[in-house]
Design a protein around this nucleic acid. Structure first.
Length: 501
RNA sequence: GGUUCCGUGGCCGAGUGGCUAGGCUGAGCUCUGCAAAAGCUCCUACAGCGGUUCGAAUCCGCUCGGAACCUCCA
C-alpha cells in the first residue's frame, strides 16, 4: 500500500474555496507549477514564505510516494506597471540604474535568489524555465487566441478580449469578481489606450524605440505580457491540464484569473485542478512588500541589521517560525516571535540529534502502553500533514515526540522495553518528518567540522575532570565554553551533550 | 464602493458543533556535586450582541475592529 493511500491528502482548493480530497490526474504522479520571482531585485522574506510553502508541499508529495514534477519559473522579462505604460519595464529600469545590461541584472538576481533558496533549504524545482526562453511559444499561443477571436491586435500590441471570453466562459471564477464591477472600479487608463475595454489585458506589447528587451513578432517588435508566460510554461511542461498551480495570494487576481482565461480560451479546457495560494507575511499587520518599504532581506535577518530586529537569526529558525502557522493564514513577523521560535526550534533539533543515536537491540515489547502511544504519535505526523499540509499541527506532534525522546534519554522510559517495530517507526518518523518533510536541520554555521572537533576535545577533558571529582576544572571549562556561547549539559550517566547558542 | 478573509489566553499561533493544540513567557516540584538540560504540575481563552442547537471558539445574523486584492507584487 502506498503511503498516499494510507494517508490520503485533503487540500484547500482556491477555485472551490473548499477543502477537497486530492486525486492526481495520473495515478502516482503530481504535476505542480508555482509562479517564481521576477528577478529585478533581491527576494525578501515574504517571497521566501511562498517558496517555502510549496517546497513543503512538493516534499510531502514525494514523501507520500508520488513522483512529482515541480515547475517554477523565473520571470526575466520585466513587466510594466500597467498595460497603459509606455516606458521602461522593471528590469530595464534596474539595468539603467545599476548601469548593467538587462541580462546582467537577471543573472545577478537569479543567482541571489538561488543562494537564498539554498540557505533556507528550499529544494530546487524539477524544471526552472525562464520567460525569455519561451518567447516563441508565447507568440504561438497569442496567434491561436487571435484566430479563435479571443484576442485582437491594436497598434502592434495584442490584447485578450475578456468580454468575448466571458460569453462562453466565466472570467472571475477564481477571484470571485464579475466583469461589470471590474469595469466600474479600477484606475482610469489614459486616453490613448488601445484596449477596447479596460479589463482587457495584454498578451503582447509593442516595444517603444527605447525599449531594450524586445523580440520580433507578427505584430512587430515587442515583448510578451505578464500572464502569458506562466500559461505557456506550465502547459508546456505539465500538459494542458495539470494537478496543482500555486503562488502567493496577491497573484490570484489578476494574474491567475488571466492565466485561466488564456489557457481555457486556447485549449478549451480548464488548465488546473487545484489552485493553492499561500498567504502573506506581514509586519505589524501589514503585508511585507518592497513598495511599502517594510521588507526584510535575508542578509539583514542573518546579521540582525534591521531596526525591528534586536539581533540576527538563522535561516532554519525562520523556516521553523514560518511552519508554525498554516500557509493559508497571514503570519506576523516580529523580533519577539522569532526569539520564541528559536528556542522551540533548538529543542526539536536537540531531540533529533538524540533520537538518531538510539538503537533498539532486542524484541522488547513489555511496555505496550507507551509503545502504542509512540506509534500513534508517528501516525499523527502523517495525518496532520495530509490535512492540508498542516505544519503547525505537525510541529505540535513533534514536540510531543520530543518529550518522549527526552524521556527515553533520561531513562523515564526504557528503550529496550518498547516494542521494537513500533519504536523504529517512531524513530524514523521523527527523523524523516524533521529532515525530509519539513526540511529542518541544524543551522549551517553550527555545523563546522573543525569547531565541533575542538569542542569535543574540551568535552573529553571535562569528562576526565568530573570523573576525578575535579569540579574546579570541570566548572571552569563549562563556564568558559558558556561564555563563548556553547552550553554544556550533563546527563545522569556521566555523558555530556552540548549546543551552540 | 466591490471581492476575499481575519479577530483565540501575557506573546506567537493550531483548531472547527461535545473530547489537552503546541511553542515562548511566568510559578512550583523532581532529578543533579553545582549548574544547565529534561520530566511533571499549575496559571490566564475564544472581539461584542443576538439566534440555531441537548450542546458553539466552531453554524447563522448584526455591530465594532483589522488585513489582502480590485495597479507591479510571493
Amino acid at each position: 500500500m502506498k503511503q498516499y493511500e494510507k494517508f490520503p491528502l485533503q487540500i484547500t482548493n482556491s477555485l472551490s474555496r473548499k477543502k477537497e480530497p486530492f486525486k492526481s490526474l495520473i495515478e502516482g504522479f503530481v504535476g505542480m507549477y508555482v509562479c517564481g520571482p521576477t528577478v529585478y531585485n533581491n527576494v525578501h522574506l515574504g517571497n521566501v514564505r511562498t517558496f517555502l510553502t510549496f517546497d513543503i508541499i512538493a516534499r510531502y508529495f514525494r514523501y507520500l510516494g508520488y513522483k512529482v514534477r515541480y515547475v517554477r519559473n523565473i520571470t526575466d522579462v520585466g513587466h510594466l506597471e500597467n498595460d497603459a505604460d509606455e516606458g521602461e519595464d522593471k528590469i530595464a529600469k534596474r539595468a539603467r540604474f545599476e548601469q548593467l545590461e538587462p541580462m546582467e541584472v537577471v543573472k545577478s538576481y537569479t543567482e541571489g535568489f538561488h543562494e537564498v533558496m539554498r540557505q533556507f533549504n528550499i529544494l530546487p524545482p524539477s524544471i526552472e524555465p525562464s520567460a525569455t526562453g519561451h518567447i516563441v511559444e508565447q507568440i504561438e499561443i497569442t496567434k491561436k487566441l487571435i484566430d479563435k477571436g479571443l484576442a485582437y491586435e491594436a497598434n502592434g500590441s495584442v490584447y485578450f478580449n475578456v468580454r468575448k471570453y466571458n460569453e462562453s466562459h466565466h472570467y472571475g471564477i477564481l477571484s470571485g469578481r464579475n466583469i461589470e464591477e471590474l469595469m466600474e472600479s479600477g484606475r482610469d487608463l489614459d486616453s490613448q489606450d488601445e484596449k477596447h475595454e479596460k479589463i482587457d489585458f495584454a498578451l503582447w506589447k509593442k516595444a517603444s524605440p527605447y525599449h531594450i528587451m524586445r523580440w520580433p513578432s507578427p505584430w512587430g517588435d515587442g515583448f510578451p505580457g505578464w500572464h502569458i508566460e506562466c500559461t505557456v510554461m506550465s502547459t508546456k511542461y505539465l500538459g494542458e491540464t495539470f494537478d496543482i498551480h500555486g503562488g502567493g495570494m496577491d497573484l490570484k487576481f489578476p494574474h491567475h484569473e488571466c492565466e485561466i482565461a488564456q489557457a481555457t480560451g486556447a485549449n478549451q479546457k480548464s488548465p488546473v485542478n487545484y489552485w493553492l495560494h499561500s498567504n502573506m507575511l506581514t509586519v505589524n499587520g501589514q503585508k511585507m512588500s518592497k513598495s511599502l518599504g517594510n521588507s526584510f532581506l535575508p542578509k539583514e535577518l542573518f546579521a540582525g541589521d534591521h531596526p525591528l530586529l534586536e539581533r540576527g537569526y538563522g535561516a532554519m529558525t525562520v523556516r521553523f517560525f514560518m511552519l508554525q502557522s498554516h500557509y493559508s493564514s497571514t503570519l506576523d513577523f516580529s523580533n519577539e516571535a522569532l526569539s520564541a521560535a528559536e528556542k522551540g526550534f533548538k529543542k526539536l533539533i536537540a531531540s533529533l540529534n538524540t533520537v538518531k543515536k538510539f538503537v533498539h537491540e532486542g524484541k522488547g515489547g513489555s511496555d505496550q502502553k507507551i509503545s502504542e502511544e509512540l506509534h500513534t504519535l508517528a501516525e499523527e505526523c502523517h495525518l496532520t500533514m495530509s490535512d492540508d499540509f498542516n505544519t503547525a499541527k505537525t510541529l505540535a506532534v513533534l514536540f510531543e515526540m520530543s518529550s518522549r525522546i527526552n524521556d527515553i534519554k533520561s531513562g523515564n522510559i526504557s528503550l529496550q522495553n518498547l516494542d521494537q517495530e513500533k519504536f523504529n517507526l517512531f524513530q524514523s518518523t521523527y527523523i524523516n518528518t524533521m529532515e525530509q518533510v519539513l526540511g529542518l536541520r541544524e543551522e549551517e554555521e553550527h555545523n563546522h567540522e573543525l569547531l565541533n572537533g575542538v569542542i569535543q576535545v574540551l568535552i573529553d577533558l571535562r569528562k576526565k575532570a568530573r570523573t576525578d571529582r575535579n569540579y574546579l576544572l570541570s566548572d571552569k571549562i563549562r563556564d568558559e565554553l558558556k561564555q563563548k556561547g556553547v552550553q554544556v549539559m550533563d546527563a545522569k550517566d556521566g555523558e555530556m551533550t552540548w549546543a551552540i547558542e
